[in-house]
Design a protein around this nucleic acid. Sequence first.
DNA 1: GTAAAGAACGAACGGTCGTGCTTTTTCTTT
DNA 2: AAAGAAAAAGCACGACCGTTCGTTCTTTAC
Lengths: 240, 240
Amino acid sequence: MNPATAAENPEIALTAETASDPAPETQDGRRLRGDRTKRAILAKAVDLASVDGLEGLSIGRLASELGVSKSGLFAHFGSKLELQLETVQTASELFEEQVWQPVADREPGVVQLVALMESWLRYFRDPDNDGGCFFSNAYHEFDARPGPVRDAIAAQKRRWMAAIVHHVKAASTRGQLKAGTDPEQLAFELDAVGSLANSLWQLENDEKAFGRAQTAIRTWLHASATASGRRALTAAGISC
Amino acid sequence: MNPATAAENPEIALTAETASDPAPETQDGRRLRGDRTKRAILAKAVDLASVDGLEGLSIGRLASELGVSKSGLFAHFGSKLELQLETVQTASELFEEQVWQPVADREPGVVQLVALMESWLRYFRDPDNDGGCFFSNAYHEFDARPGPVRDAIAAQKRRWMAAIVHHVKAASTRGQLKAGTDPEQLAFELDAVGSLANSLWQLENDEKAFGRAQTAIRTWLHASATASGRRALTAAGISC
DNA sequence: GTAAAGAACGAACGGTCGTGCTTTTTCTTT
DNA sequence: AAAGAAAAAGCACGACCGTTCGTTCTTTAC
């Protein structure tokens, strides 16, 4: 969806949909209408699932919230499993739009890494996402329930972690991080504080959690940065 | 339940039950039997809820897994809400038993802090807790659903965070941590890596996550420790 | 020895779940 | 204008949900 991002990080292309979309060239008004409602359904599904979970998401409630019939909605998916899988897919695309794209044009390396993490934090507190991060909920809901939904969610988590690792390595190859830095370890720690900030924000409306996460992210990166890395950070207005 | 722990950390006594238990001195065999089955019910409820969530926990399934009647089980609680609340309470007690008690006799300060975090990590991978940490699931399931269950769960999280902060401060007053150390910030970071380790373990059976969490915990504490703090750590066999 | 108390049970309630089948409405094609 | 395809609605189903009721059996109390 975003060429710059896709070129920089080919392994983390989150838009399987756009690639596999078979024939959007048809001018059929019926299918257009169907696609539009389906998109609306899935957007609402992400919303509801962020609050009640993917299992708590019920077809009847989803239909009545949208003012459509249960059977009409159901026909779009054929099964609840399929609805769940497409909801995960839709959430991925929204995630990419709201987290990835805003930082796609930042200077690659440590600056883009920090920007990505802070974009993530902003996504958490976006009032549109009232149920918090869709994936944070989904991870924990399905982490002990084997099946296609869990697989899809786990793949998403893997992509996210890989993206952070990729950015850490990009910073390293640019000579912005000290030699001893372990990319996977640093990515683990960055992901950890972000995830916890979301949790505390949802559970206690604790604004301070974002400050703590930001402090941790900036402190660690300044500590791991070389002189050139620190220069890039301060030049981008990212202080410690 | 554990006098040493209670004396050291009066504000984090997790056993409201034992204190509020009104009259266990009755030798009524009927109530004894009732208490025993109720305990068994709640233990199983924690198990099931760790996998399917507190909302996914259904009275019918719980009853059939235990080989008792749905109505007989239901009579112990009177409502599903009450069952959920008592399940949270039971999970708290199990958490204290499995995480707190094993480190209650460790040397207070930085050594006990590290021991607590690593006891927490062991609790995550305990095969008895096949669904992972009950609370990690519950936090995310209820973080967007106001109500008594969410309140009970949030209180538990607050106690846990307060406990970590308490130990950091205990280490500080013993001169084991550098002057600039922010207890709440450090507690935030420690909780973050532990929580993520549990997530990755559940989602991907990723053993390495525990290693990363342990590395982070030990590295940070060594980095924040004074000479005396480092001496205490190495004396306790906690290397970096 | 009889009455009260408590635990456990089976049956049933109204409601919602996911899921099929049939029909109606809407749009495109000829 | 007629025919046909796709979207949406209507209706009904079996299963399970939390919950209530009346009953049985065992244990304590008078």
